[in-house]
Amino acid sequence: MLEFTVPGLSNADSATLADTLQKRLTACNDLHLTLKHVHWNVVGPNFISVHEMLDPQVELVRGYADVLAERIATLGGSPVGTMGANADHRSWDDYSLGRDTAQAHLGALDKVYDGMIGDHRKAIAVAGEVDPVTEDILIGQTAELEKFQWFVRAHLENAAGSLPTTDDASEKGAARSATA
């Protein structure tokens, strides 16, 4: 229960925003760990380029989680970032690849970013109705997430600009398509 919020926002709007941001916080925590997992498990000819590409993504996504948690607290909520809470509250399955080639992981990460960006955009719509400050935070994060996905896709696309993972709904399917 919120006992305070920022001036100009009702407790109800703040509670809605805090709940929306908590979902994004959980997703950022998961994405940061997924990116690190890929960083540790990528192999093959493109190992070093993918390995090094992921470090800045990990750091920025960790920072996004911090910003979201601080915004939740600013709104009067209590951010939850424990592993147990993250596992209990996420609405997606664990990342499905272990040790695999760079192309396989990049195909799977493309799908991870699809979900992450899509859900961030939904959160932008919620925030846009009541709070331009929270909306702005989410817009800035989404722009960077889209850039990260572009980096991933640049490794996957062919000269015509097609992605082998376009028709895949799952990480494993995208991983198979990326290595075919």
Rank of each mutant, 00 (worst) to 15 (best):
H155R: 07
K147Q: 14
I72N: 04
D19N: 15
D167I: 00
L17T: 12
N46A: 14
G98P: 00
W150C: 03
N86V: 11
H120N: 15
D13T: 08
A143Q: 13
L17E: 09
A69P: 11
S170T: 15
L109R: 06
G8F: 09
V43E: 13
D55V: 12
T26Y: 11
T166I: 02
A27S: 14
H105T: 06
A69L: 06
H155F: 11
V112H: 07
K172Y: 04
P164C: 03
L97A: 01
M83I: 10
V112S: 05
V43M: 07
D119S: 15
F148K: 00
D19L: 06
M116S: 13
V38W: 09
D66N: 15
A104S: 08
L31F: 06
A174H: 05
L31T: 12
F4A: 10
Q149F: 04
V152E: 02
V67N: 14
D100L: 02
A175P: 07
N29C: 03
V112C: 04
G84R: 10
L35Y: 11
Y64A: 05
L97V: 05
Q103M: 11
K122W: 02
D88L: 06
I48H: 14
H120K: 10
Y95T: 01
I72V: 14
G63V: 12
Y95K: 01
L2M: 06
K36F: 13
P7T: 13
M83S: 10
V133P: 09
K147I: 08
A159W: 00
A87F: 03
